[in-house]
Amino acid sequence: MLVVRDVMKRAVCVGPDEFVAAAARKLKQSNIGCLPVCDDGRLLGMLTDRDIAMRSVANARSAERTTVREVMSVDALWCSQDDSVQTAAALMHGAHVRRLVVLDRQRHVDGVISLTDLGGGASERRPFEIVFYKEILDHAGRPHRSELMRVTVAQESREAAIEDAVWEFQAYTHVDDWRVAADGFEVIATHAGE
């Protein structure tokens, strides 16, 4: 039986009192989308690129003065390194999330597992990425798109992919209409021939 420990990635953690700007640099340097927030190896929460976009950038809060504690999600979902990959997949699907923190037997942060690690992107259906964004003005008043959330969906059609992505975005942001939280979205076909 394949267990989480066999497919997870090592966690890159961030401290609760680090500034958002430093956390964003960690995300970029490691080319990842989330950082478990840890204190002495114990899980306090999760910081995602979406948390930074929605709770810091979109609210015009300074990334140099805002701490991780102020924008992190405190209810981080986790699984054990000894859980089966099926259990981890069921947890992610049931909670409509794409990642889980992995804890060791002493309940310390050990890694992160994503749907991609479980082969969640592998299917005969075609993958699309739907990127939700907010329009913000820079210091000169020029508009720029700030990415709020990127959803990868395997679906038969572009329309079905958009429908699934909108549902996931609304569930994540706790809104009934995606337009409340985002100014728009862009659909990217990630397969040849589209």
Rank of each mutant, 00 (worst) to 15 (best):
residue 136 I to V: 12
residue 83 D to H: 06
residue 57 V to L: 14
residue 139 H to A: 13
residue 92 M to W: 11
residue 169 F to A: 02
residue 184 G to D: 08
residue 192 A to R: 14
residue 112 V to D: 07
residue 71 V to E: 08
residue 107 R to Y: 10
residue 108 H to D: 13
residue 157 S to M: 05
residue 24 A to V: 00
residue 134 K to D: 06
residue 57 V to Q: 12
residue 152 T to Y: 11
residue 65 R to N: 02
residue 39 D to K: 15
residue 78 W to E: 00
residue 165 A to L: 03
residue 49 D to M: 06
residue 55 R to W: 03
residue 134 K to H: 12
residue 33 G to W: 03
residue 165 A to H: 06
residue 99 R to L: 09
residue 35 L to H: 04
residue 111 G to M: 00
residue 56 S to N: 14
residue 96 H to R: 15
residue 89 A to Q: 11
residue 72 M to D: 11
residue 51 D to R: 04
residue 27 L to E: 08
residue 157 S to V: 06
residue 76 A to C: 05
residue 32 I to S: 00
residue 139 H to Y: 01
residue 155 Q to K: 15
residue 166 V to I: 14
residue 68 V to P: 10
residue 19 F to V: 15
residue 150 R to F: 01
residue 42 R to N: 14
residue 47 L to K: 02
residue 181 A to F: 05
residue 81 Q to D: 13
residue 90 A to W: 05
residue 135 E to Q: 08
residue 186 E to N: 03
residue 22 A to H: 07
residue 58 A to T: 02
residue 138 D to K: 00
residue 82 D to A: 15
residue 40 D to N: 05
residue 18 E to P: 01
residue 77 L to Y: 10
residue 171 A to L: 13
residue 165 A to V: 11
residue 18 E to W: 13
residue 32 I to F: 09
residue 47 L to I: 08
residue 158 R to F: 08
residue 23 A to K: 08
residue 103 L to I: 06
residue 142 R to M: 04
residue 140 A to M: 01
residue 144 H to K: 10
residue 1 M to E: 15
residue 146 S to R: 07
residue 25 R to V: 12
residue 87 T to C: 09
residue 78 W to G: 06
residue 104 D to M: 00
residue 19 F to S: 13
residue 24 A to T: 05
residue 55 R to G: 09
residue 15 G to P: 00
residue 106 Q to C: 09
residue 112 V to Q: 01
residue 66 T to K: 06
residue 175 V to C: 12
residue 185 F to E: 01
residue 110 D to M: 10
residue 72 M to H: 12
residue 120 G to P: 03
residue 54 M to Q: 12
residue 115 L to V: 12
residue 135 E to C: 11
residue 186 E to W: 07
residue 103 L to V: 05
residue 133 Y to P: 07
residue 45 G to L: 07
residue 91 L to D: 04
residue 178 W to A: 07
residue 166 V to E: 12
residue 189 A to F: 09
residue 40 D to T: 02
residue 12 V to I: 14
residue 68 V to L: 11
residue 160 A to M: 05
residue 6 D to I: 07
residue 42 R to L: 12
residue 11 A to I: 00
residue 152 T to I: 14
residue 148 L to P: 05
residue 73 S to G: 01
residue 47 L to P: 02
residue 174 H to M: 12
residue 31 N to D: 15
residue 41 G to V: 04
residue 129 E to Q: 05
residue 75 D to N: 14
residue 88 A to K: 04
residue 96 H to C: 11
residue 107 R to M: 12
residue 95 A to T: 00
residue 128 F to P: 01
residue 139 H to R: 13
residue 107 R to S: 10
residue 50 R to P: 01
residue 44 L to G: 03
residue 169 F to Q: 00
residue 185 F to M: 09
residue 32 I to Q: 03
residue 94 G to T: 04
residue 139 H to K: 05
residue 70 E to H: 03
residue 143 P to F: 11
residue 104 D to W: 01
residue 194 E to T: 02
residue 178 W to H: 11
residue 35 L to N: 07
residue 85 V to G: 01
residue 37 V to N: 01
